[in-house]
Design a protein around this nucleic acid. Structure first.
Lengths: 195, 195
DNA sequence: CAGATACCTTACCAATCGGTAAGTAACTTA
DNA sequence: TAAGTTACTTACCGATTGGTAAGGTATCTG
């Protein structure tokens, strides 16, 4: 049985794709509506303004980020961190939609005072890190600093992929991607395990 | 003697600030003009379109990035890389305008097919890296992968600063910044020196 | 002093922006 | 079958968008 597709959900997914590509200011309600094959009033019917639509996109993003952590099953916190980050790096690089959305939200954060939905995600990862032998005697701030290097390196490469492949060509880009992926695996190991 | 301030230059600086804050789509010609205390036609007089204005902003950015590398004087390529990246990390975190501009340009790169002006910068850094004992027997792609982790970690933290200080408060943010700066110094050392 | 150049303004334009109001067609439920 | 409810559409709005055209004024140059 095919579950009836919720129109609001469909618009939200299309809006997520567009906001990721073009940013808040680059997307118009008419564009999202055109993607959906409806008028913009159909979209406004569910989300009363563009701001609310974007807010809901970010809320869903926050939910996905948390869910991706919780989906990882591994015996120890270290193993969970390693498994999570390896999965995260792979998906961020191959399908950078969410990574782009996160970075765009970071860039636009001080423009409008939006309630920032990435905090639970960072806090969850910090909790996990604090349970590992490597970090349990360190401060949360030190763990966050370590986390941030890792996330930063992954996200930055993820959002750079189109530029890099355009600049250097697909062949070189593929080599770069595998070289960087190998490096990232090493950094992830270093982060999650005692040294 | 005070050199006569070039109006075009002044508009360009104001536009750079705004594009960094709000992105291409978030900035209107009227806003830049308002910042300068003129009408938008004054701005259009020098840059015939918003696209060209933004293009010139990116060109200047590319020039600054290169100039900052060349401004570093140190006896060896390793020392130059270390000195450059330490200076770069400090300025990117304290005054993230250019970092934000780079990241915004990366995000928007596939939307419009713009000639990408960061390539000379990356190539220059790669040339420098290849002259160090650490990388001289490695491939350029491997060096680029290493570079990209470093740049990514720095830039990502730089653009996150407002969000992080807003989320965790200034006191914790200051601790985070010093912890991360210390980590970055270590990563920079590891990148530029044999291990 | 005549003319050119630099620098900017007013006036205007079609297109698009986010958003309101009102109505319609189809389906669901009492 | 009457009354909602769902999921839209058409019509419209004032404001803003990037951009064109034409002109004005001050300064510099021959």
């Amino acid at each position: 049985m095919i579950t009836k597709p919720d129109p609001a959900d469909r618009y939200l997914n299309l809006a997520t794709k567009r906001f990721s590509e073009l940013g808040f200011h680059g997307v118009s309600l008419a564009l999202v509506a055109k993607d959906a094959g409806v008028t913009k009033q159909a979209v406004l019917h569910y989300f009363r303004s563009k701001e609310r639509l974007y807010g809901e996109v970010l809320n869903r993003l926050a939910g996905r980020l948390l869910a991706e952590i919780d989906a990882i099953k591994a015996p120890t916190p270290s193993a969970r961190l390693i498994a999570y980050f390896e999965a995260y790096a792979a998906t961020a690089i191959s399908t950078p939609q969410d990574a782009r959305l996160v970075v765009r939200a970071l860039l636009d954060s001080d423009a409008q005072a939006r309630s920032w939905p990435i905090r639970p995600y960072l806090d969850r990862l910090m909790d996990l890190a604090m349970q590992t032998p490597r970090w349990q005697n360190a401060s949360r701030v030190e763990a966050l600093a370590g986390l941030y290097q890792l996330i930063g390196a992954i996200q930055y490469f993820a959002i750079s992929a189109p530029t890099l492949s355009g600049m250097y060509g697909n062949a070189i880009f593929d080599d770069l991607e595998s070289a960087l992926s190998a490096d990232l695996r090493q950094i992830i190991q270093d982060f999650a395990q005692a040294h």
